[in-house]
């Protein structure tokens, strides 16, 4: 007699999928736990940690925002190799507003998110028709161009950058704003991607011609998605500018393009929660390995490869499956 392994949704999930069937605290907890637990955990760890690790959590949150924004773009059919473009444009925008006009960070950061998103969208508007590799190549080159322009012309502080920018009111405010922003972006965008609007974006990624046939202007939709995603990344850039009280050419560095992609791959593409999880694994890990000197990159890169080969679906989809389904061996009857 032969057997096979069977995968079944947990009864509690089947019932909880229908909101009217929530009859017990247990079922409500089942639904709420995966959403509430990470928020609370991060809050407690953040508040309990020392200044150094609070700083790490703040930075990680910004990388998480970059990764989420990358995932939104990828889900809409735009694979970006240049999150640094959005990050850098946001960083410079808020830096300039603060430096030249003396505006408070509380004003420059939101403004930089919107203006930075708009500038990035305008810059990429001509290449929205490109798909896949071609779009990726253009986004890869863009931050490099801007970096060299700043270096060559000496505008915006040139190679020196601009220091002495205003900082955020308090270290704890900084940390809490970073956390709130991460959760707002995650839950808001997850909801957006599940709405009709998000379904159209996913459709563009899947089969753009079918979406066009449905009478939808895909270039307009792509531009909107690009604006949403780049605004989030620009926010991260603006926030980091005021956290470091400095803006300069390093904001266009490759790190800001590559780490979000690595986080997404480790966490799970297309889930938005995956990239966040990935960022919260990779960035603190790279801090932990700092003591190892040159070996740090080797270990870090090896881990990445292990994850990609061993768990290509990503950590989040794997955990989600284990949470909602169970497996058992069954006899196969002929």
């Amino acid at each position: 007699m032969s057997r096979r392994r069977e995968r079944i949704d947990r009864g509690i999930k089947v019932r909880a999928d229908d909101i009217y069937a929530l009859t017990s605290w247990r079922e409500m907890l089942y639904l709420a736990a995966p959403r509430v637990a990470p928020v609370l955990t991060l809050l407690v760890v953040g508040l309990a940690a020392g200044p150094y690790w609070q700083r790490v959590i703040m930075t990680t949150s910004m990388f998480a925002l970059l990764a989420i924004s990358w995932d939104v773009l990828a889900a809409s059919g735009m694979v970006s190799l240049g999150q640094a473009l959005f990050f850098g444009v946001g960083a410079y925008t808020s830096g300039m507003l603060n430096h030249y006009f003396g505006w408070s960070p509380l004003l420059t950061i939101p403004l930089a998110a919107v203006i930075g998103g708009a500038i990035s969208t305008l810059l990429l508007l001509p290449v929205l028709r490109l798909r896949g590799l071609y779009f990726a190549m253009v986004t890869l080159i863009m931050p490099l161009i801007i970096e060299r322009v700043i270096e060559a012309t000496g505008i915006f502080g040139g190679t020196e950058g601009i220091s002495g920018l205003a900082s955020l009111p308090h270290r704890l405010v900084e940390l809490l704003v970073a956390m709130v922003m991460v959760w707002v972006a995650l839950f808001g965008l997850r909801r957006l991607m599940d709405s009709d609007y998000g379904l159209v974006l996913k459709g563009i990624n899947d089969n753009d011609r079918s979406v066009m046939s449905a009478g939808i202007n895909i270039y307009r939709r792509k531009a909107e998605a690009l604006f949403i995603a780049s605004s989030i990344a620009a926010f991260a850039g603006a926030f980091m500018t005021h956290a470091y009280m400095f803006v300069g050419m390093p904001v266009f560095a490759m790190d800001y393009s590559i780490l979000p992609i690595a986080s997404t791959v480790v966490g799970g593409v297309g889930t938005l929660a995956g990239p966040l999880l990935g960022a919260f694994i990779l960035v603190p890990l790279s801090e932990l390995l700092r003591g190892l000197g040159g070996l740090r990159i080797v270990i870090y890169a090896t881990l990445l490869v292990v994850f990609i080969v061993g768990l290509p679906e990503g950590i989040f989809p794997y955990l989600k499956r284990k949470y909602t389904q169970f497996e058992r061996w069954v006899e196969v009857e002929k």
């Binding site: 032969s2 096979r4 392994r5 290509p312 679906e313 989809p317 196969v332």
Partner: peptide
């Protein structure tokens, strides 16, 4: 199997 998708059983 690798991407954690549908499990296919062949007998």
């Amino acid at each position: 199997r690798r991407k954690g998708g549908e499990r296919i059983t062949v007998m």
